[in-house]
Lab assay of single mutants.
Amino acid sequence: MLEGKVKWFNSEKGFGFIEVEGQDDVFVHFSAIQGEGFKTLEEGQAVSAEIVEGNRGPQAANVTKEA
């Protein structure tokens, strides 16, 4: 698991990027966000996630919002 913060997230398109210190930004799709209801993230929000290899490079999986 790694910790980072949301760089930006487009709720209409359902994707965005997470900033991780010392690494390239990581793509995040709404389907990777854990929880019930409408899955979205806010800019600057702290999150933790796993990194997996997607079709277009590294992407976030099992994204959870930090308190």
Score class of each variant (00 low, 15 high):
G4H: 02
G35M: 13
A32Y: 06
M1H: 12
G35L: 06
E12T: 13
K13G: 06
W8H: 01
E12V: 13
A32S: 10
E66V: 15
E36Y: 09
E43H: 14
S11R: 14
Q23F: 15
Q45W: 10
F9G: 02
G35I: 07
V47E: 00
A32D: 13
G44V: 04
A46T: 12
A67H: 11
R56N: 10
G35K: 03
F30Q: 08
D25R: 04
H29D: 07
Q59H: 09
K5F: 11
V63P: 02
I18F: 02
E66H: 15
E3F: 14
G57P: 04
S11M: 10
G35Y: 07
S31P: 07
K7H: 05
G44P: 01
A61I: 14
N55F: 14
E50V: 14
E42A: 12
H29R: 02
E19Q: 12
V20H: 03
G22H: 05
G14M: 02
N10A: 06
E19N: 07
E12W: 11
N62K: 13
F27L: 05
I51A: 03
A60V: 06
G57Y: 04
F9N: 03
S31L: 08
S11L: 08
V47K: 02
G37P: 04
M1V: 13
W8N: 01
A32R: 01
G14D: 01
F30D: 07
K39S: 05
E53D: 10
V28A: 02
E43G: 12
Q23D: 07
K39A: 06
F17I: 06
V26Y: 05
K13T: 07
L41D: 03
E12H: 12
V28I: 07
E36C: 13
T40H: 08
M1R: 15
E3N: 15
A49V: 15
Q45Y: 06
K13S: 08
L41P: 01
V52E: 07
A60T: 03
A46R: 15
K5E: 03
F27D: 06
E66Q: 15
E66I: 15
K5Y: 10
I18D: 00
H29E: 06
I33F: 02
G35Q: 09
I33P: 05
E43M: 14
V63N: 01
Q59E: 12
E50Y: 11
G54I: 04
I33V: 08
F17Y: 08
L41N: 01
H29K: 02
E36P: 11
A49Q: 03
Q59A: 08
I51T: 04
W8K: 01
G16Q: 00
N62F: 11
Q59F: 11
F9Y: 09
E53I: 15
G16N: 00
F9S: 01
Q45R: 06
F27M: 01
E53G: 09
E50F: 11
E36N: 11
I18T: 00
V28F: 13
I51N: 04
Q34R: 09
G44K: 05
W8G: 01
D24A: 14
K7N: 04
T40G: 05
H29N: 02
G16D: 00
D25E: 04
D24N: 12
F9R: 00
R56V: 07
E19S: 14
Q23Y: 15
A60W: 03
A61W: 08
Q23G: 11
K5P: 00
E42W: 13
G37Y: 05
Q23P: 05
L2E: 04
E36Q: 10
V52M: 09
V63E: 03
G16F: 05
E53Q: 15
K5M: 08
A61L: 11
N55K: 15
S11D: 08
R56A: 08
E3Q: 15
G4R: 01
Q59L: 08
N10Y: 04
Q45T: 09
A61S: 10
V52S: 07
A67K: 13
V20S: 05
G22W: 06
S31T: 13
A46H: 14
A60N: 02
H29P: 00
G14L: 03
S48H: 14
E66M: 15
E42I: 14
F27T: 04
L41E: 01
V6I: 08
F17V: 08
E12L: 13
N55W: 14
A32T: 07
F17L: 05
Q23A: 11
E36H: 11
G22P: 01
V20R: 08
M1G: 09
Q45G: 06
Q34T: 12
A32I: 03
I18K: 00
T40C: 13
A49N: 02
H29V: 03
A60Y: 01
S48P: 02
A67E: 12
E42R: 14
G35F: 07
N55H: 14
V28Y: 04
N62Y: 10
A46S: 12
G54K: 06
N55L: 14
V26P: 01
A60M: 05
N55V: 14
K7P: 02
E43N: 12
K5G: 00
S48R: 15
R56S: 09
L2A: 09
D25N: 08
L2P: 04
S11K: 15
Q34S: 11
A46Q: 13
V52Q: 08
N62D: 04
V6C: 07
S11H: 13
S11N: 10
T64C: 10
K65W: 09
L2D: 03
I18R: 00
G16L: 04
E36D: 12
A61F: 10
K7E: 01
G22C: 08
G4P: 01
Q23I: 11
G16I: 04
G4Y: 04
V26Q: 00
K39W: 06
V52W: 09
V6Q: 00
E19A: 14
E36F: 10
E3P: 13
F30P: 07
E3A: 13
E12G: 09
G16T: 01
S31M: 06
E66K: 15
A32E: 09
Q59Y: 13
V52C: 14
G16S: 00
V20I: 14
P58F: 11
G22E: 05
F38M: 06
G54A: 06
F30G: 07
V28S: 01
G4A: 06
Q34H: 10
F15W: 15
K13H: 10
R56Y: 13
L2H: 10
S31V: 05
E42Y: 15
F15L: 05
F38L: 07
Q45M: 11
L2T: 10
V20W: 07
E53C: 15
H29L: 04
M1Y: 13
V20F: 15
V47S: 02
G54R: 07
E50S: 13
E3H: 15
V28N: 04
I51D: 00
S48T: 14
V6D: 03
M1D: 05
W8T: 00
D25H: 06
V52Y: 10
E53R: 13
G54Y: 05
S11W: 10
E43I: 15
Q34E: 11
V6A: 00
D25Q: 05
E53F: 14
V20Y: 06
G16C: 06
S48Y: 14
F9E: 03
E50T: 14
G4T: 01
N10H: 08
E21C: 14
V47P: 01
A49I: 15
E42S: 12
L41C: 07
G37T: 04
E3I: 15
